[in-house]
Design a protein around this nucleic acid. Structure first.
Lengths: 146, 146
DNA sequence: TAATTTGTAACTATAATGGTTACAAATATG
DNA sequence: CATATTTGTAACCATTATAGTTACAAATTA
């Protein structure tokens, strides 16, 4: 069985978009990014707007406008990109345990601290990669298979 | 913003149920477990059936039947419990990147390996806890606040 | 035989997600 | 200034995953 606990593609889209920007000197339009990512420009705008809040990208309206990196690719860690998605919990405590049960009444806090620990390890791993790393690996593949 | 990448409570439910079994000598019915977890017996049966496939629990039909642990609590690591959910991917690669683009055509594999790395760290963290640990912490809370 | 309990299929309600349309606001160009 | 370009954002829809629920068959015990 394959369970998709997470059909959320926003993180992958974010990294893809940033990698694309890192590979291009000029700003790219939502349209152009959407074409590479394989989605709709509005989806890109939504995603990029979150990244802009963390000063990872900048936008400019109008002719010759578009999106560009606000920092060098090697200064953009994937954990920060991940955090642009908001307060994500990859593991979720269940909703309504029975407060009258000694287990049910006390397990939520215990689970939450375990889940926090696990997620922190996940984020630590993501922090080990930058957009520059991703671009390098992508280009390596592109040249290797060209 | 709070994004629930994951509204899946099955893992929390699994750990809760196992902790409950660890705290009780006799088998517990789906009904009893459901009452502590705060859900429906059928949800419990579904969850427990997955755990049974990994020989973490056993079931018995009929009067005085129910669910029991197939192993000592300290021999049940949370990573294994997590794996009972199936092939879970906490980070998902996006669907349709543009194959004609050098970035779009090569990023999926790169992302997947990063995601695999991150998830492996998450699972490693989970492997550091056993059902016995959870029970101990829950009972500590229960006594502390009693 | 009757009561208990799991096994499982089928259906529903809810919610998250991504895709899409529509249009306002900002900007550049001629 | 007028026009084309491009982002900003609200609104809505289709799809999907999830959990909850009902219903009933199968197994087990007494």
């Amino acid at each position: 069985m394959v369970t998709n606990m997470n059909t959320n593609q926003r993180f992958a889209i974010s990294v893809h978009a940033l990698t694309l920007l890192a590979a291009n000197a000029d700003p790219l339009t939502s349209e152009a990014i959407a074409s590479s990512v394989g989605t709709n420009p509005v989806v890109i705008r939504r995603t990029m707007a979150s990244l802009r809040e963390l000063d990872i990208v900048e936008s400019k309206s109008g002719t010759n406008g578009g999106w560009s990196l606000a920092r060098e690719p090697k200064k953009i860690g994937l954990c920060e990109v991940y955090r642009s998605l908001g307060e994500v919990n990859v593991l979720t405590v269940h909703g309504h345990p029975n407060k009258l049960c000694s287990i049910g009444g006390n397990i939520s806090g215990v689970l939450q601290s375990v889940f926090d620990d696990a997620q922190s390890e996940l984020e630590k791993a993501l922090a080990g990669y930058t957009v520059a790393d991703i671009l390098k690996d992508v280009l390596k593949k592109a040249n290797g298979s060209a």
